[in-house]
Amino acid sequence: MRIVTTAGIWLIRFAYLAFALFPLLWLLRIALTPDQLLYTEGTTLWPSVITFENFRYVIEESPFPTYFLNTVIVSLGTAAIVTVLSTGIGYAFSRFRFRGKTALMVFLVITQLFPIVMLITPLYQILAPVGLVDTRIGLVVVFTAFNLPFAAFLMHSFFEGIPRELEQAAMIDGCTRFQALIRIILPLMLPGVGATLGFVFTAAWSELLFSLMLISSEAKKTFAVGLLSFVGRSGVDWGQMMAAATLALIPPAIFFTAIQKYLVGGLTAGAIKG
């Protein structure tokens, strides 16, 4: 009976693993399949021959390295700015009593109800006159705003995990409030800062619609836009596309794997209590 239960639990674990990983493995499998075998061995689990030709083509001859670089710039920029700004918001929410605090918190929650698709046109019209359309900075600004509310709540819960006495001790020891934040609190919050950074990086890396609408020049396209325009072309080259997709997956996967355990910690501290 006990053995059956154990086996059953392992079976469930493997089912989860298969569900999570099969699509990704398939991506890799197609990317490694030589073109001429794609249709004859399209549905077998692993091709008889594998090739890195698709990866070579994507890296050396396609515009994907440019897209890749653009996405890195935009995602890192967004992640850095959001982390700084959400630190400020989380700190203020966590450590101060002030007028309008509840209203501001509610406002940040309500932004999560906004239909993002409705904002595209108005945003375009706001960004165009200040020259932020078709720029990477424009994308950073937009992604920053979209990711800030959640990041702020995440940071808030990390701040709540740091005892107030620590910064009070520092302030008695001679620090200004800001010095206490920089020298005592932030070093202790590195996991939280890392989690927020990784979370936002991953989110910015995924963004599609605004990149699609705000970016028109080839040299500034992000990965999502590039890949999608690839799909649109007639005679899709599956292998190359999957190779590009596999490459696009690497940075967020690394970031996310690094932060996931801190994310669990941060959410425990209070983000989900609402």
Partner: peptide
């Protein structure tokens, strides 16, 4: 490993599953 799908950009999971539903390149 099981958390990995969340790291996959949304558009990419869309494309990925689009291909997976295609009988020519997917089982």
């Amino acid at each position: 490993l099981v958390f990995l799908p969340w790291a996959v950009p949304t558009f990419l999971s869309g494309l990925n599953w689009q291909w997976l539903f295609n009988p020519i390149v997917s089982p």
